[in-house]
């Protein structure tokens, strides 16, 4: 799978949804570890998730989900990274923000190669596997032919 990674939204969205352990492993693997200072330390809060009446109509409040966010600035060059991730893991938000910041620097290639691409591939595999399992439970109808 080749992906362009031109859009900040694309990588932030991926980083928000990846499993905590998977990102931690990939981050350690990448061994980038830049110096940074916090603009906003990681904090956990809630986001109200909304649905639409009838799936397409006016919005209503469905319920909340936990989200952890943070913002930081790299010591070298001053790129600012934001992390908004699902769940309560502060390390997850920190690594997501670091990736976001590094994507704006010369380290971009390393982040894409060792973190984003493998994580996107994993996510696509997981999604694909569920879709294949669902497809196997799709009903094939047979028309009954009445006796001759």
């Amino acid at each position: 799978m080749t992906q362009e990674w031109n859009d900040r939204k694309t990588w932030m969205s991926l980083l928000a949804k990846v499993p905590v352990e998977a990102l931690a492993l990939a981050w350690d693997e990448a061994d980038l570890g830049p110096d940074y200072r916090w603009l906003r330390r990681p904090e956990t809060g809630a986001v109200m998730v909304r649905g639409r009446m009838g799936g397409t109509g006016l919005p209503f409040n469905l319920g909340e989900m936990t989200v952890t966010r943070c913002a930081l600035e790299l010591a070298d060059g001053g790129a600012v990274g934001h992390g908004y991730v699902q769940g309560r893991d502060k390390g997850h938000a920190e690594r997501a923000a670091l990736c976001d910041a590094l994507m704006q620097t010369e380290a971009r290639g390393a982040v894409v190669e060792t973190i984003l691409t493998p994580l996107a591939t994993q996510a696509a595999q997981v999604k694909g596997q569920r879709a294949e399992r669902a497809a196997a439970t799709k009903v094939d109808f047979f028309t009954m032919v009445r006796g001759e």
Binding site: G45, A46, M48, P59, E64, R133
Partner: peptide
Amino acid sequence: YRTTLPRFGLSNAIETADMACDR
């Protein structure tokens, strides 16, 4: 527990038409 969480905001409405359906 949820009453202790700060509210970061409201999501955009989810698009159930784009759901990855298990069922």
